[in-house]
């Protein structure tokens, strides 16, 4: 892998002020994304994956911490910076039904980004819309239809075409497949994979389906309660899982063989995720960890490199 860092995230925090306190959606997260790779981000619902993705997109401003994109600091509050960054980074949403404006035709949805960024003249834009539609596996006669005339998978393709229209280099895929049927999921995954090779894209792939993440990602980060608890290359993470939470997460993946599935040893977690408003003082996972000791409840573990490229935040490894 060429180790050119596209995105450097250091000590990133995103807090929301809600009634009853401060919700720490993303708390002190640091990692890098290299150019041309797919960085998988997994974790259960509400652990801050999507928020992290949106902060990296500049949709939400960060509460603390720094994001360096291609060596330059990203500050969405500076006028014009958000606009220039939008040209480079795009997002694909989870819900293909909510992410397309119901009152615009597919053609104008895809062309919108090009209009905003003043790309091409009107005639060339129409050609580009056709090219993009065909690139994502749709036909040019779809351009004059409205989003509700399409199925979920087709709508997701439209969402991908919209993101690709302004030729970004970095795409945040915010659970792009979790709202789709399994058969359609593989189509979309393969489409994303092909596009990555053809257009040299970098993905941040957010999901909770571990098999899919393993298939598409080169490196995987595991999030729990706003913290990044483990980070490793995908083979390494599956072969040598270090964090007890990642372990529990991976043991929940069903194996498509009933005999192996029956003999599999599952780590079943008890209890609930602590509230992100009142976070416990020690390790965020201590309350549910099967092997937590006194130190875990008192002291928050830092993310440290155990073997080269394998980072984990746990006192016990």
């Amino acid at each position: 892998m060429n180790a050119e860092k596209l995105l450097e995230v250091s000590a990133l925090c995103k807090y929301f002020h809600v009634s009853g306190g401060t919700l720490k959606a993303v708390d002190d997260v640091s990692f890098d994304i290299f150019r041309g790779e797919t960085f998988g981000l997994v974790g259960e619902s509400g652990c801050g994956k999507s928020t992290l993705g949106r902060v990296l997109m500049g949709i939400y401003g960060a509460t603390k911490g720094k994001i360096l994109y291609g060596g330059a600091e990203l500050n969405p509050n500076r006028p014009g910076a958000r606009f220039r960054y939008a040209k480079k980074a795009q997002i694909i949403f989870q819900d293909p039904y909510a992410s397309l404006d119901p009152r615009m035709t597919v053609g104008s949805i895809i062309a919108e980004g090009m209009i905003i960024h003043g790309m091409y003249d009107a005639r060339r834009r129409t050609e580009r819309v056709t090219e993009l539609l065909e690139m994502v596996g749709l036909n040019r006669e779809h351009a004059n239809r409205f989003p509700h005339e399409f199925s979920g998978g087709q709508r997701q393709r439209i969402g991908i075409a919209r993101a690709l229209a302004i030729e970004p280099e970095f795409i945040v895929c915010d659970e792009p497949i979790s709202a789709l049927d399994v058969s359609i999921q593989s189509q979309i995954i393969n489409l994303l994979h092909d596009l990555q090779e053809r257009l040299n894209l970098t993905y941040l792939f957010i999901a909770h389906d571990l098999n899919v993440v393993k298939y598409i990602s080169s490196r995987i980060g595991v999030m729990y309660l706003g913290h990044l608890v483990e980070l490793a290359s995908s083979e390494e993470l599956y072969a040598r899982t270090l964090h007890p939470y990642s372990n529990a997460l991976l043991s929940a993946v069903p194996i498509p063989d009933p005999r192996a599935e029956r003999e599999k040893r599952r780590t079943i977690l008890t209890g609930d995720v602590p509230s992100p408003i009142h976070t416990p003082p020690g390790c965020p996972f201590a309350s549910r960890c099967p092997s937590a000791c006194g130190r875990c409840h008192a002291e928050k573990p830092d993310l440290r490199e155990v073997t080269p490229g394998h980072l984990v935040a746990c006192h016990l490894t």
């Binding site: 500049g58 949709i59 795009q90 997002i91 909510a98 404006d101 119901p102 980004g113 905003i116 919209r162």
Partner: peptide, 29 residues
């Protein structure tokens, strides 16, 4: 909070464009 509004924002829409092209047509009907 609709995703298509966030998507337009992510594309770099100005607030003016967001209001006139996305919010108003959806509101007007």
């Amino acid at each position: 909070t609709q995703e298509f509004i966030i998507a337009a924002h992510a594309l770099g829409s100005s607030p003016w464009r967001l209001i006139t092209r996305h919010i108003v047509p959806n509101l007007l009907s």
